[in-house]
């Protein structure tokens, strides 16, 4: 066997998925207009990748290391302060 693997496939490092950055899967990039945002936290609730951080009850800018650009936040935003733009690579 070429690889060293723990028996039973046990992963001993907790939270190791944080090393797997899915941000480069993105085709569309959410642009968040902080001035229009009403801090309703719908985007935070709906984001499937936990890529919208919040601090003291306030939405922070999107975590682009993990945001896959799915656009759910833009769709759910009641004041349309999130817009999906084509990713420039």
């Amino acid at each position: 066997m070429s690889k060293k693997l723990n028996i039973g496939g046990v992963i001993t490092e907790p939270g190791s998925t944080k090393h797997y950055k899915t941000g480069d899967w993105r085709t569309f990039r959410p642009y968040w207009d902080k001035t229009k945002c009403i801090q309703c936290m719908r985007c935070w609730q709906f984001c499937p990748d936990i890529s919208i951080p919040q601090k003291d009850g306030k939405r922070q800018d999107t975590d682009f290391d993990f945001c896959k650009g799915c656009g759910i936040c833009a769709k759910e935003c009641p004041v349309k302060c999130i817009v999906m733009n084509k990713e420039k690579k």
Partner: peptide
Amino acid sequence: KPVTMGPIA
């Protein structure tokens, strides 16, 4: 000392 058991391979 958390570990993950029975993950996908």
